[in-house]
Amino acid sequence: MSQFTITIDGREVEAKAGQTILEAAEEAGIYIPRLCHKPGLEPFGGCRVCTVTANGRPCSACTQPAAPGMIVMNETEQVKDFRKTLVEMMFVEGNHFCMFCEKSGNCELQAMGYRMGIDVPRFPFLFPKRNVDASHPDILVDHNRCILCARCIRTSRDVDGKQVFDFVGRGANKRVAVRSGTRLADSDADVSDAAVEACPVGALLKKRVGYATPIGERLYDKAPIGSEIENGEES
């Protein structure tokens, strides 16, 4: 029972007890798209971009444990369209201006958009009014770009041991807030915190770094997101 077989898109894949579908797929060189998942953090299942079907039922691959004989579908048109829809909704519900965002080229959301072939979202842009918290001397929080993946919240709590961030609000009003006050400057956040590096988009940034990496040398300039898993490279 410690090792068993599942199938992903008809291919037999070895899995270990306790592994999620996403982890088993990754070991086999199969990329399942994801945004909130980050190695080293507990599975969260928040963004749902890793949705697959397991034995015909949709589930998030980052939280669903693999089980013997499980039939997983990752690359069907239905699953791909479902994920693409989710990513498109992320683009329209925030203010993602890739053209001048310093995270461009290193942004997982942007890279996901390219990988999924999103030319233009099919939904109307909401253009929400969101604020920028530049109170901290070395860290910038730009809520316009936040996708509520909770990576900063979880990394601060579980890796940094600080609990700088948390969610407040419900539904469309949900947002990341600073636990200790209204501004990041009021917290014990430090630029060396792992949380600052955890953001997949340009919502949490080290100040004054900007565009130091030239175009052509940024993370996703040379290969699409996920290719490091598909090519068996260390991520």
Binding site: M99, E102, V132, A134, K207, G210, Y211
Partner: peptide, 14 residues
Amino acid sequence: QGRPFWEMPVAVQR
């Protein structure tokens, strides 16, 4: 206004 200054060279050229 309200954007970080280091964005200016890339933002304003648009």
